[in-house]
Amino acid sequence: MTLPQRTALFSFVLPVILISITYYLSWQGGHVELCNPFIDGCEAITATGVYYPAAYVFRGLMVAFVSFALWWYCAAAWLNSINSAGIKSWVRHLVIIAMGASVLGVASISVMGENMVPPKEHREIWRFHSITAILFFLITSLCQILMALRMHQLRDQLDYPRWSVPVKVVLATAQLLTLITLIVLVVTDRETSEIVQIVEWWLAAFICVFFLTGFWDWKNFRLTRLERLSPSEKHQEANV
């Protein structure tokens, strides 16, 4: 397994595990309802990480955001490796912006904890968390949409499973439709906290699955020349 593959896998597995644990701990503590937030919108992702001990686990997501940033670096290096002229400038800027969004995610998580309770007395902390979290979701979703578009343009040049780019396009389309739906509801003043929370959960899921697709894309891609083949991979290449 290559370093880029580990990054893609880690970017999916870690958030799923941490959110599951924090949800369970918060439910056990009586702070959230036990439901399906993807359908009911009964709880926000943030609600699972306010109270201790769940808040301690929730802060582990800062590591996941670092992994997201590394994923974008791997994606840029991968695209650059297939073209001697290098990647387009707008793609390079896209990657930098996406990595900046990951930094916003770290900032959003860093203030989480019981120091936010009660909300009325800590509005500045909640405002900071909300703004940075919204910017992370919005920027990352838009960057993934544009990255899917670029990979679709290069589909005949990339070394990847043929199903990978169509899956990315589907995920990007789902993110775009979700964002458009939310914008329409906000403009028409029909959004509710439940709808916003449902959107938040689904966007988080789409983002993580998008990152996971890199696991199959980067099977033969190595980030550095120092990254060696494992014995099993050497054996497989010898038999080709």
Rank of each mutant, 00 (worst) to 15 (best):
V91H: 07
P118A: 02
V199E: 11
A133V: 11
S141H: 01
S193A: 14
Q28A: 04
E233A: 14
V32I: 15
L229E: 14
W90N: 12
H122Y: 10
V167C: 11
G214V: 09
L135Y: 04
C35G: 11
F58I: 04
E114G: 05
A75I: 10
Y51T: 01
L61M: 11
W126Q: 11
F65E: 02
E121M: 13
T140W: 00
V57G: 04
S20N: 05
T173W: 03
E114I: 02
L61Y: 03
P37T: 10
S110M: 07
W72I: 03
L176F: 15
L3D: 03
F58T: 04
L18S: 04
C143M: 14
V57H: 02
L104I: 02
F128N: 08
I183Q: 08
L171Q: 06
G113L: 01
L3M: 12
P119E: 07
Y24V: 12
V103Y: 00
W90E: 12
H152G: 07
E124K: 07
L229D: 15
R123P: 07
P161R: 01
A205M: 15
T178W: 01
P37M: 09
T188W: 00
P53Q: 01
A107C: 12
T22K: 00
L176A: 15
W71G: 04
Y51H: 12
E237W: 00
M62F: 01
E227G: 11
I97K: 03
L138H: 03
A172R: 10
D156R: 03
L229S: 11
W202H: 14
R155H: 06
V199N: 13
V240T: 06
F128E: 08
D159H: 09
R228T: 12
F137T: 09
T224W: 14
Y24M: 08
L212Y: 05
I134N: 13
W90S: 12
E227Q: 15
L176V: 11
G60Q: 02
F215Q: 07
P4E: 08
T188H: 05
E227V: 11
P161L: 00
V184K: 09
L142K: 06
V57T: 14
A64R: 01
T213W: 02
A64I: 02
Y56W: 10
N220M: 06
I109A: 06
A107V: 13
I87W: 01
Q197R: 15
L229M: 09
Y160R: 11
L79A: 05
A47C: 03
A85T: 10
L138V: 13
L229R: 10
S102Q: 00
S230K: 06
L135E: 07
W163L: 08
H122E: 13
C143T: 13
C35E: 13
T46I: 08
A85Y: 02
K168V: 03
T140Y: 00
M112S: 11
Y23L: 05
I207V: 15
A75R: 13
L142H: 02
P53V: 00
V106A: 02
T132C: 13
F68R: 03
H129D: 10
W78E: 12
V184H: 08
